[in-house]
Amino acid sequence: MRVALAASVRTLPRGDGLAYEPKFDGHRLVVVRTAEDVVLQARSGRVVTAAFPDLAAAARQLPAETVLDGEVVVWHAGRTDFALVQRRAAAATAARAAVLAQSLPASYAAFDVLELAGLDLRGRPYERRRALLVDLLLPLGPPLQPVPMTTDPELAATWYETLPASGIEGLVVKRLDQTYPAGRRGWQKLRHTQVRDAAVVGYTGTPRRPLALVLVLPVGDETPLVSSPLTAALRADVVAAVATREGHARAPAGATVTAIGIGEVPYRPLDPPLTAEVRHPSTARHPPPEVLRLRTEL
């Protein structure tokens, strides 16, 4: 099942015929209720039914031949916790998954219905699909729930400002008349971002062609993060700046850092660090921090 995707925007879209939904900080999950049982599919296409037996059990209440699109989340201390979703998804055995289902129960924030009782709805307008989704899930109740939705941009703006305390990443914006854009970035997403200074403790690439910066943000657990790729202008600034840092040429063998979506990559440490102004999501996970400029005056 190819899921719909969203393109990032930096301001709240406004206009007639738009719908706004909170963007939950969880794992994308397609729920497929077949005639015989339930299949849970991750965005990658991997089947993860065994990791979420509580959601699979709840989904058996759905009509046969029904498909939902949404996000699996785990609530903890009044907010969604992405790390706990990862723990649930990584359950290696049925016994371990059952224990985690008791201690860390999952919720499913559904935002679309793609098939209902054998009827393919992907060609129907979002407004119609949304009405069918609400009618389907409200009688069932948790852990299967439709995400909140509004067509009021002022209420959406209030959500955007107030919901991050609950672990909400931002907003997803859809057209009411839109069919389901399978495999395309047909929706829009506005993520919470913050602009602040970060310590540049290293860089990937070479001294003459740095590719990205290794950053420590002034929030979280000080785990180094790899920035998004540098622009040509920023690469030139970094080349000039690292030339003054004696430690950059003495990278310890095997120094690596985890890059989002790539894995472990080698990097060259900087001693002393540089400072950069970066824009990054409030959740400190994807997408990577964006470097805006070096703060060479600091």
Results as ranks from 00 to 15, higher is better:
Val113Gly: 05
Leu84Asn: 07
Arg130Phe: 10
Leu104Cys: 01
Gln145His: 08
Ala77Met: 02
Val72Met: 07
Thr93Leu: 04
Leu144Val: 06
Pro139Tyr: 10
Leu116Gly: 03
Val99His: 09
Leu114Gly: 09
Val134Met: 02
Asp69Val: 10
Val113Pro: 05
Asp112Met: 00
Gln86His: 11
Tyr126Asn: 04
Pro148Phe: 06
Ala117Thr: 00
Glu127Arg: 15
Leu132Ser: 03
Val85Ile: 12
Ala94Ser: 15
His76Glu: 14
Thr151Gln: 11
Leu144Gly: 03
Ala95Pro: 00
Ala92Ser: 15
Pro139Val: 12
Leu100Ala: 10
His76Cys: 08
Leu132Met: 14
Arg124Gln: 13
Leu114Arg: 14
Leu116Ala: 01
Leu100Asn: 09
Arg96Pro: 00
Leu133Ala: 02
Leu121Tyr: 02
Val147Glu: 06
Arg122Ile: 05
Leu140Cys: 02
Pro125Asp: 14
Glu127Thr: 12
Ala77Gly: 04
Thr151Met: 07
Arg129Gly: 08
Arg96Asn: 07
Arg96Gly: 06
Val134Leu: 01
Tyr108Asp: 00
Arg128Asn: 03
Asp135Trp: 01
Arg130Tyr: 13
Gln145Phe: 06
Asp112Thr: 01
Ala109Val: 11
Ala95Asp: 01
Leu136Thr: 03
Pro139Gly: 10
Gly78Ile: 11
Ala98Glu: 15
Leu138Gln: 14
Val72Gly: 08
Leu121Asn: 01
Val147Met: 15
Ala83Thr: 10
Asp135His: 07
Arg88Ile: 12
Pro125Val: 13
Arg129Ile: 07
Val134Trp: 04
Leu100Glu: 10
Ala83Gly: 15
Leu100Gly: 13
Tyr108Thr: 01
Gly78Tyr: 08
Arg128Ser: 12
Leu121His: 01
Arg122Asp: 02
Pro125Trp: 13
Gln102Val: 14
Arg122Leu: 09
Leu140Phe: 10
Thr80Asn: 04
Ser107Leu: 14
Gly123Met: 05
Leu116Cys: 07
Gly123Glu: 12
Ala106Ser: 14
Ala117Arg: 12
His76Trp: 13
Val74His: 04
Pro105Glu: 04
Phe82Glu: 12
Thr93Pro: 06
Val85Asp: 14
Thr93Asn: 09
Gly78Ser: 09
Arg129Ser: 09
Leu137Ala: 09
Leu138Ala: 05
Arg87Pro: 00
Val113Tyr: 06
Gly78Cys: 11
Met149Lys: 01
Ala92Phe: 02
Ala109Leu: 06
Ala97Tyr: 08
Val74Ile: 11
Gln86Tyr: 02
Arg124Ser: 13
Ala131Pro: 00
Val147Trp: 11
Thr151Phe: 02
Leu137Ser: 04
Leu138Cys: 04
Gly70Tyr: 07
Asp81Asn: 05
Pro139Glu: 10
Gln102Asn: 04
Val147Leu: 15
Val134Ala: 08
Arg122Trp: 02
Leu144Thr: 08
Leu119Phe: 03
